[in-house]
Design a protein around this nucleic acid. Structure first.
Lengths: 213, 213
DNA sequence: CCGCATCCCATGTGATACTG
DNA sequence: CAGTATCACATGGGATGCGG
């Protein structure tokens, strides 16, 4: 049960003993969005074997990172306060990895939670603070998210609602956020398709969410 | 050679594919201190098997995180610019794990590089900025480091030199940095032993390096 | 059906030995 | 010193089972 250790006494080593096992940090990532049921976690981690998911959940509990909580008759997993302190780590990790994302391979999918965390990682609060509040409807690879930016605050939720701009994109949206593709050319090339609302707001979106390689 | 993937297209997933394998982030941690030779890496990662070290070095090169560089007849490994961008990740990871460090187990050792990174993670630049420049000689678990604080700048090197305060400590130093033990009580309890210089500077050290649980 | 537990096999890991 | 080779073993992956 005790995670394999590294024989070293140090901060990074300790962190890796707690959340360094395969899949562990992805479970944490999804729980940073909100509490999740076992099945929801399994769905968000497309290819995790069920025995591994069960094992990780136990280990993360033993490590004090997550806990089981009964929510109105069903059991959900949620982060402990200490687990929530992993948010800067996951965001930094996500921002770093984002820059190395090329084109997706065929079997690679996008999940609502992974996309939410990518948007959080790319969010530039200081830029958004000086822009008008805006709601975007973003549809990427079968995932539809409602993205509300209000000053320096960002809220990403599933489902939809009233938006100022709705657009649909392939994974090429990654190149819009990286600055590799300008908003105009993203539309012209078909990488982003405008669905509803004011199309010029795509520029504002690209300013708000940006992670240069 | 290609790291096992997670079947998902996202920033965190991509990052884990690149540096998520066992030992990989520890290699990066040591290389963040400076270029290292193969043998130095092996010495800093006490129990890594040589075949694993060799495999990780190849994978990290293929991932564009590190590179081999010829330095005056010997080969050293160093981070690429992209690899160096992992510094915030490693620091955040180290700060998080530091808070979960209990007492060391018997077989756990402290290496110069791990201790250097822990000090960097615990360094509070904003606090140090308003304190006089100070040089500490810190000896912990057989590792001796020269710690120079100059305004908001921190420099940690091996070996020794002129210092304002030299002290020796067991791993209990961790409790000084966490605030669990006051400087006075650290000395009184023997957790920290003053060697040279002005003992009252230990309080300044504890203010400069702090990571509360 | 959800939340796991079991089984089996492929692969990665770890200790040791070995080579240029 | 800087790796490579080998082999036993632990872990991960995928399918399946099963109780509440």
């Amino acid at each position: 049960m005790a995670a394999r250790d590294y024989g070293e006494y140090g901060g990074v080593t300790r962190a890796l003993e707690l959340v360094g096992e395969r899949w562990a940090l992805l479970i944490v990532r999804d729980l940073l969005i909100g509490p999740r049921r076992y099945g929801e976690l399994a769905a968000g981690l497309p290819r995790i074997p069920s025995n591994i998911l069960a094992a990780r959940l136990k280990e993360l509990q033993a490590a004090g990172v997550i806990r089981r909580a009964p929510r109105s008759r069903v059991i959900v997993y949620e982060l402990t306060p200490y687990g929530r302190e992993l948010e800067p780590v996951v965001l930094a990790f996500g921002a770093w990895g984002f820059k190395a994302m090329g084109e997706p391979r065929d079997e690679q999918i996008i999940t609502p939670d992974s996309m939410t965390m990518d948007l959080r990682a790319a969010f530039r609060a200081s830029v958004a603070a000086s822009l008008p509040a805006t709601a975007y409807g973003a549809r990427v690879g079968g995932v539809e998210l409602l993205v509300r930016v209000n000053g320096a605050a960002l809220q990403v939720t599933r489902g939809d609602g009233p938006v100022d701009l709705a657009f649909s994109a392939g994974p090429g949206i990654h190149r819009l956020i990286s600055g590799e593709l300008s908003p105009d050319r993203a539309i012209a090339s078909g990488a982003v398709e405008l669905l509803r609302g004011r199309g010029e707001l795509l520029g504002r979106f690209a300013s708000t969410f940006h992670l240069a390689a």
